Every structure is written in C-alpha cells, then in structure tokens.
Computed example of a mutant assay.
Amino acid sequence: MSRPPTFTPPPCARASRLRTARGDFAVLDARPAEGVAVRGTALLLPGYTGSKEDFIAMLQPLADAGYRTVAVDGRGQYETEGPETEDAYAQAELARDAIAQAEALGNDGGSGPVHLLGHSLGGQIARAAVLLDAAPFATLTLMSSGPAEVAPAQQQKIKLLGDALRVMTMDQVWEAMRALDPPEEAEYLRSTREDLRQRWLRHHPVQLLVTGRRLTVEPDRVHELAALRPALPLHVVSGESDDTWPVPLLDAMAERLGAHRTVVEGAAHSPNTDRPTETAAAVTRFWDTRGPRRQGLQNRD
C-alpha cells in the first residue's frame, strides 16, 4: 500500500473532475503560478491500491518547474467510480482511459502532447496506452514498474489479498491488514491512518481483483515498447531498492529500451512518496531535455 505523507493538496493544486470521452475522473490538477512559463502538461497514473494522492508531494515542485500536472484516480480507484463487471478493468480498457485523459488535457488549453508517467501498476497501464496509441504523448516515464509480472513474493501477497476480498468486506480486509503491521509501521501511519482507510474503503474490490491478477501474469512487452523509439522518449525511474521488481531487472529493462535511467537515492518502491523533491527534479530534467540529443542514448542519474 502506498503511503502519501498527506492528503491535503498544495496551494498550486485543486481537486476536480476531468471530463473525457470515456467518463469523468477524479484528479488533482496542479498549475504553475502566474508569471511562470508553462513548459508542458503531465499526466500521472498511480499504482495498485494507490491513488492520485501518491503524487501529492511532487505537485508543487513540478508546478514550480513550469508543468501543469494532473494526477488521476483511474476507474474504480478511490474517488473515481467504477462498475461491477470485471471486463471494465481489463488492461486495454484502462489504457484507453489514459488515452482519453491525455486527449482531454490536450483539448483543455494544453500545449501539445502530454508527458505520461505511471507508477508500478500505473506504469504497465501507461505502457499499454502508448502501445495502443502513442500520438497523444510526448514522453513516457515508467516509475518502479517492471517489464513483466511482479516478483514471486508479491504474487503471493496479491493472491492472499484476492482470496480475502472474495469472502470479506473491504472494512474487514483493512482491519486484517493493519493487524499485521509492525509497531513502527503503526506509528508511521498515525497521521494519515484514517485518510488511508477511507481511500481503501472507496476502492472498488473488483478493480483490485482484476488489476491484481494482471500484475501476476503481465507479459514482457519491452520489445514492443522499444520499437516506439526514437519518436517517444522513454525514462525508467526507481528507488535504490524495490521488492516488487528488483532494481537489476529495472536496469536491464532500461538498457533494452535504450531509455534514460534514474535511480533515486534513499527511495524504495515509491520514490514519489519516499523522495518526492528529488524525484520531481529527475522527472523535470528528463522532460526539459527530451529531443534529438537525448534520443538513442541511455543515461543514468
């Protein structure tokens, strides 16, 4: 479970609804201050069990750097409603949602194609989106999101969660998960515990079941993604450690992609919450310098 430090947006951001051809999505929309030159627009997709709030600490530095940044709850995540049917959460459907979100941003005073960033599950949805249609996107950043299925230990955790969701209420599952927290984790969660609980309760269990299952069987599509270069600049970001996709696996994926590579010191699976300022700086450096000079190169910050 991702753990944003706060659920209160910074001054640059407001909670709103993004209207698209595929429905409305709850977003945090952060905009540069008056007088700051707008350099582009970014769309941020959260991970499994996460939400738009996972990017909340990155919004102000991204806006200060000149980027309108929209973090979104996908269908069935937190404040975006979702249907009961499993087909609605198929990866291709979620990918088409991301394309529609980017197109809506491009039509809403946008300055051209959108920078797409996905964390963990969001990265695999983002990858599927650009493989369906790369035209709405200026760049793609995969943050702590690997080439194929998650590590075996994570597969087991997802299976246990799925089994619980089939026989327990969301509230019962929450309490069972918290009973397993070590004391130091309980202390860490003290300030945001109720916000995290409310977010969990508003996730659609079918969304968790379908997307969790997909994480355990995702095929390796790196060769397909690599074929989009150099037209679509690629960036692989991770922390120094990762228990979902090992860092050496992410290194190898970046090399296969010919992608720019950033390792955020002091961060684990969620650089966006562990080291948000440093992560925002790495992302904006990539966005600022995209273009012919960077294409065809692999770099490591």
Rank of each mutant, 00 (worst) to 15 (best):
S2F: 06
S2W: 04
P4N: 04
A13S: 11
R17F: 12
G23M: 08
A26P: 04
L28P: 00
L28D: 02
A30I: 08
P32D: 00
P32N: 02
A33T: 04
G35Y: 14
G35C: 15
A37G: 07
A37D: 08
R39T: 11
A42W: 08
L45V: 15
K52V: 01
Q60N: 06
R68H: 10
V70F: 03
A71H: 06
G76V: 09
E79S: 13
P83W: 13
Y89M: 14
A92G: 13
E93K: 15
I99R: 15
A104K: 06
L105C: 02
G106I: 03
G106E: 12
G106Q: 14
V114K: 06
H119T: 11
Q124K: 15
L132C: 07
T139C: 05
L140W: 04
S145G: 08
A148K: 12
E149F: 12
A153M: 00
Q155D: 01
K159N: 04
D163A: 12
A164T: 03
L165S: 06
R166D: 01
D171L: 13
Q172L: 01
E175V: 10
M177L: 13
D181G: 05
P183D: 06
E184C: 02
A186N: 10
Y188Q: 14
E194L: 13
E194W: 04
D195N: 12
L196G: 10
W200L: 05
G212I: 02
V217K: 03
A227R: 15
A227P: 05
R229N: 00
P233L: 10
V236P: 00
S241L: 07
R256A: 12
L257A: 07
L257K: 06
T262R: 02
G266L: 04
T273D: 00
T273M: 05
R275K: 15
R275F: 01
P276M: 07
T277V: 13
E278N: 02
T279H: 05
A280D: 03
A281K: 14
G291V: 09
N299G: 10
